[in-house]
Design a protein around this nucleic acid. Structure first.
Lengths: 203, 203
DNA sequence: GTCTATAGAAGGATAGAC
DNA sequence: GTCTATCCTTCTATAGAC
């Protein structure tokens, strides 16, 4: 049985995913978590803002672990990236298009309205970019292009989530995955070796 | 001088950008628009939801016009796509990272909570995808890959906005632009012609 | 048809009983 | 330290004066 604090954190993360930060009320949190209202301020004296910050960092770390497990489970980094996108699309369909990026909605909501929470989302994204950069460097890509590629792949995932959740179709996420795989494949090709994009090369 | 209805629409669009849908109150709208409170329900009998839907569709159409003007202003579609991203990055910096996609925040907020508004955001994204697909087809790309490329480019723009607003740096948007340009350039290369990715081809 | 006042619900936060 | 009751503000929405 989870502790009261953990139930509050888990419930808040779930509600944030579905309704965002401003759309989630503390009364709804304690109702769903089956916790007394006072517990929120007992465990999070800073109120909603403190609870929000802890949920952002916690959800960000959990999602990173999840994605890295899939990424590292692939035969190589190209296959791993493909698995991340196809897995994300499958989860999206299975959860009625609810379960996507746990912090994207909040990040946009607070970007220009709450500096503390904005920094929290930025730091979470930073850990994701750093982890992806590390994986790409280990695949033989130089530091600068590896970081650019990491940013690009995460952007494709986030953009795919946005369009797919709006459309309630995974077409957009599938297209994003194909593009991400193509970009990673191009980048991991050893320098000096010709990269043929068309099936039959000419010249 | 703009009409009261137009002032309400413009003000709401601006507040939505900054605070999102749930984060924007009608009282703040009428205060900023210098309009009496009753005017909101006079012009939008459906209340906040109707106002929100009209703002989503209006902002989506205006942003499409803006982006297409930049896209079509380039020497070719490759240059146009590059201009869109560099222009978006410039606007982001100039507006203190406020002025990005006018409907992305709302789209994520309502994706799983308000079906009417979710459909509105989906239809706006559809018009964007259709317009970009059209431009890519006119550049000689076949229908199916043109649509996939359109989705991909819009996803990169949206993902770039998300990461750049969170980080308050345009590094992410710049990386997205470089990737978008690379993907478009690859796609517009006439089929059957070798595409050399590395400066010096081997084989 | 422009504007004010207010209703009724929900928001975050606090005090204090136990 | 767990839980309840309540405060004050803000929200959407409506009624009705002018």
């Amino acid at each position: 049985m989870a502790t009261t604090k953990e139930r509050i954190l888990d419930t808040t993360a779930e509600l944030f995913r579905r309704y965002g930060y401003t759309g989630t009320g503390l009364k709804q949190v304690v109702a769903d978590a089956a916790a007394p209202f006072g517990s929120v301020y007992h465990f999070f004296p800073g109120g909603k803002a403190q609870l929000g910050e802890e949920v952002i960092r916690r959800s960000g770390a959990m999602y990173l672990d999840l994605v890295l497990a899939v990424l590292d489970g692939g035969a190589d980094v190209v296959a791993g990236v493909g698995d991340v996108f196809s897995g994300a699309a499958a989860v999206l369909r299975e959860t009625d298009y609810v379960d996507a990026c746990p912090i994207a909605t909040i990040a946009l909501e607070v970007a220009s309205s709450n500096e503390v929470l904005r920094v929290a989302t930025a730091e979470v994204f930073d850990t994701w970019v750093a982890a992806a950069t590390d994986r790409f460097e280990r695949a033989g890509i130089a530091a600068a292009p590896a970081r650019a590629l990491a940013l690009t792949v995460i952007e494709l995932l986030e953009g795919g989530f946005l369009l797919s959740r709006a459309a309630r179709t995974t077409e957009a996420l599938d297209a994003a995955g194909a593009a991400a795989v193509a970009l990673v494949r191009l980048a991991v090709t050893p320098p000096g070796q010709a990269t043929r994009v068309t099936p039959r090369g000419a010249t």
